[in-house]
Design a protein around this nucleic acid. Structure first.
Lengths: 181, 181
DNA sequence: GCTTCCATGTAATAGGTTACATGATTTG
DNA sequence: CAAATCATGTAACCTATTACATGGAAGC
């Protein structure tokens, strides 16, 4: 289990210093957000622990009307730990899909609801594909590879749904065309 | 959070009765195993709870040299609960990838290790693609759709890695060809 | 002879999500 | 005027993973 929230934080901090809030935002907004996630409830405790372990340091900035902003910086020890984590064998990808699970039981779902489910999923996958189509100007090769990977996969999913949804939908009653004489 | 282990068990049991052991095996071997998972440590307690709630019933078969086999059957109540679960909005897919996270930091990984990581992943994705290429003869349309979805996505991933791994690899030193006179 | 398959189950542990608590400022 | 953004953090809860416990039979 190398990819705990602490490792994720170290990774982002290896690129740039950031606050807990900014770390979460980065995970939500950047391409990587499609492949990892972490909530505030896990990020803040992770940062506290990284401090205790001396893997990050922290500067505080006073602000008016809101809590002090704490900017975390990775330490040499932290960088060392992160580089070491990168040497471990990454765990298998996890691709969990409630949607696909549901589709296994398409025959137990009413047609109207089924159509709604498929339409929603289709829109959702399209949206993700489009989000991942846009390159940021400052993108590193790694980021480009990862974003491209996501884009490719979602593009394939969009096309697949388009071309194969008929497998799930009960064929509409064939209207026998009146033979015109 | 509709897709807990209990719902997964109900789903499979809506198709056929099974023991806890068989449920886990089905999740490991069938196409669906690529999109959901559950370990014995979660399946057995889930079945116990489903029993308490009256959503499954159980017949025991004595066996020699191993624990009694408990075959679980879904009850009408259980079927009702499952059908109801299918009406909820499925949660977003979760696609967690340590590999892709690592690749964001390709510049912090030694070339030899990086090549190993990419080769491993490539082989892994190829294997999954091939596993999902094979249709079982008894496949339902839902199963066909789900398996095809997986196959398509992994196929796209294989091709993407093949065509774009160069983004991550430092270009080998150009050997300047000796100009022949 | 070792590994895998069959077959159930418990317990310790680890980890995350969600909701809560607080509150000013900016944007729509 | 409502919602989102900024900003941190805690605590209750839930759930799953992992390892453990047991052990015969079959396949390699």
């Amino acid at each position: 289990m190398t990819l705990d929230v602490r490792t994720i934080c170290l990774g982002i901090l290896s690129r740039q210093e950031a606050s807990g809030y900014e770390l979460q935002k980065a995970l939500k907004e950047d391409a990587i957000g499609h492949f990892v996630e972490a909530s505030y409830g896990s990020i803040y405790p992770a940062l506290t622990r990284l401090m205790d372990e001396g893997l990050v340091s922290c500067r505080e900035f006073q602000q008016e009307g809101r809590p002090d902003k704490k900017i975390y910086t990775i330490t040499p020890d932290g960088l060392e730990v992160f580089r070491q984590a990168l040497l471990e064998q990454p765990a298998d990808d996890k691709f969990r899909s409630e949607f696909l699970f549901f589709m296994l039981f398409a025959d137990q779902i009413s047609t109207s609801h089924l159509l709604e489910l498929i339409d929603n999923r289709f829109a959702h996958v399209q949206e993700r594909r489009d989000l991942l189509a846009l390159a940021e100007p400052s993108e590193t090769p790694g980021e480009q590879f990862v974003r491209g990977y996501g884009h490719t996969v979602f593009k394939a999913a969009v096309e697949y749904i388009e071309n194969n949804r008929h497998l799930l939908e009960p064929s509409p009653p064939q209207v026998r065309r009146k033979e015109t004489v």
